[in-house]
Design a protein around this nucleic acid. Sequence first.
DNA 1: GTGATTGCAAATCTTTTGCACTAAA
DNA 2: TTTAGTGCAAAAGATTTGCAATCAC
Lengths: 132, 132
Amino acid sequence: MDHDVVAKLRKAGLRPTRQRIALAKLMFGKGARHITAEQIHGEALSGNVRLSLATVYNALNQFTAAGLLRQVVVDPARSFFCTQTHEHHHFFYEKTGRIEDIPEDMITVARLPEPPPGTSISRVDVVVRVDG
Amino acid sequence: MDHDVVAKLRKAGLRPTRQRIALAKLMFGKGARHITAEQIHGEALSGNVRLSLATVYNALNQFTAAGLLRQVVVDPARSFFCTQTHEHHHFFYEKTGRIEDIPEDMITVARLPEPPPGTSISRVDVVVRVDG
DNA sequence: GTGATTGCAAATCTTTTGCACTAAA
DNA sequence: TTTAGTGCAAAAGATTTGCAATCAC
């Protein structure tokens, strides 16, 4: 419902505008998603939500900065935004360019190296590339 | 020496042109490197090797297709090419945008998930992001 | 010679930005 | 009102491409 999404945006310090509400409903309304700005923009237009691609980029970046989304880097050509904000990993289908979550407990990274002095690890990403 | 590089290119099925030889010497002449097209182009020009950025992109892509280089995807803004072609992983320094190898035996990925039916794993990349 | 390769500039693509306009509080 | 947010079109980057000139064999 709108209420959830509005509350979510408010809590993140983002003013709940028509565009942000619509995007948030698309992003968070149907489980885990991995989607590009272009794709979400297309979905919005299909659903009769009129908004510009620039606004989509701005909103997705703001959501990411606020911790509502995560950016997944697997494809040099474009950025995917992912609705799972906790530590988890990904399958990347090289043929189709699709991304899929790997349940966090399916992968164990043992013996992580020490980060260089003066730094700390902010995140560990595992990408399993699949030729499908 | 030139001979090594020429042989390497020939074996990869690439005609050893002046430009490809120069690039190969820069890439493979000083141990493991992680470098962008822009950076290598700059190095070449500094070393009085005249070649266009377009040719650098073409050559690096050909080297990658031939298995001489690997592309590392960590930064949505640009592509890094890496001279280590065997399985290994990376530190990514978020502040400086630099990449560094993690010796392969420093990380152990336990319990890799099964790839979806009909596919096989082509590669596993681990990126340790560091806030330095 | 002949076919592969290069260079340049133009084209493409994704993402960001400037600024006048609109909407939320 | 007042300030944040939006749209558009233009700008900015990175990378690719078309085609005539050039080079390797």
